[in-house]
Design a protein around this nucleic acid. Sequence first.
DNA 1: TATATAGTTGAACGATTGCTCAACTATTTT
DNA 2: AAAATAGTTGAGCAATCGTTCAACTATATA
Lengths: 117, 117
Amino acid sequence: MAKYECDCEVIHEEALNKVKKQVLSDDEYLDLSDLFKMFADSTRVRILHALEKGELCVCDLANLLSMTKSAISHQLQSLRLMNLVKFRKEGQVVYYSLADDHVKIILDIGLEHIHED
Amino acid sequence: MAKYECDCEVIHEEALNKVKKQVLSDDEYLDLSDLFKMFADSTRVRILHALEKGELCVCDLANLLSMTKSAISHQLQSLRLMNLVKFRKEGQVVYYSLADDHVKIILDIGLEHIHED
DNA sequence: TATATAGTTGAACGATTGCTCAACTATTTT
DNA sequence: AAAATAGTTGAGCAATCGTTCAACTATATA
């Protein structure tokens, strides 16, 4: 980060210094935004919201969202990489479920926000 | 939504029917993902996290993030449209702050998640 | 009134992203 | 052993997104 110069002077030095003391690391901000990227697509939000209600396999999700197994599988892989879903294999069938309850909390607060105005 | 056909049969009809009863509307999923898009970019996350610590003007934010006023202003406009920040004008200076505490809650749970593994 | 500064805006460009398609692995069934 | 099915994977393409750039408005100051 901090790649570019700003084009103005600091106006509120005191306020800014106070904030600067509480700033997180570059990596933390990148990890945070990478995490929220998972919630930034309606297909993934549908998948996460469905899994919140119960464990499902790839075909179930493909049917629910009227999408191909491939499309669903790609998204599930991203969600897996971000530790939002876990899976277990039984024969040919792979069952996905939520990794922890952070997903539910985040979706609930999001819903609260969009229903507010 | 529901643009494409799926390419497999339903495997767990009962589980799927249970989930289907709790599915939200297309618009709700779109609104949700649009909301979380705001958290899906590290610049915007930095802005939101800074504003969580106190009210700042555009130049303060530009300095803090080492970016131009223009870049910051574009992002602030997106955040405004999603009702995540509010502003007040005093002379030439525009002060931004968080619109409500949903932002703080969402960021906190996100941080909890990324610090977990 | 002229100049400077804070902030906004729209177009444009490069980078990222989501889905498709085709090919593949793994497991089950005949 | 062959065929069918569940799922994964990589390349490619169209669409979306973030920043830059230049032009602009609005307020303050000399």
